[in-house]
């Protein structure tokens, strides 16, 4: 996937999150640096369900392996940019 593809993907994910964030009355701007747990107040189940919705759009995503890898790296949170990079990598591999 080229840079244009990445930017389109980023825009799509941000748009989805923007729609949802309005329901949570989250008013700060959403950026690639926004964190799901710390900033958005996600719980793990939120991420799992969001993953289910994204997979309907982008096809199979090895979501659990992605989260497990971050956990093994000692990461305490995940950013929107992490998620988009993960989807980009996967969609690029599947293309």
């Amino acid at each position: 996937m080229n840079d244009a593809g990445y930017l389109r993907l980023l825009a799509e994910v941000l748009e989805t999150l923007q729609d949802l964030a309005a329901d949570w009355e989250y008013s700060r701007p959403l950026t690639p640096a926004t964190t799901f747990f710390g900033d958005l107040g996600f719980e793990s189940l939120d991420l799992v369900v969001l993953g289910a919705a994204l997979q309907r759009r982008y096809g199979r995503l090895p979501f659990a392996e992605f989260l497990a890898t971050l956990g093994q790296q000692g990461r305490q949170d995940i950013t929107v940019g992490d998620l988009v990079a993960f989807i980009r990598q996967h969609v690029a591999q599947g293309a």
Binding site: E43, L47, Q55, R60, F63, A64, L67
Partner: peptide
């Protein structure tokens, strides 16, 4: 086999 695993360790523990 075609779908991704949707349930990570933490979510499983929560459930």
């Amino acid at each position: 086999t075609a779908g991704a695993r949707l349930f990570d360790a933490e979510a499983e523990a929560t459930m």
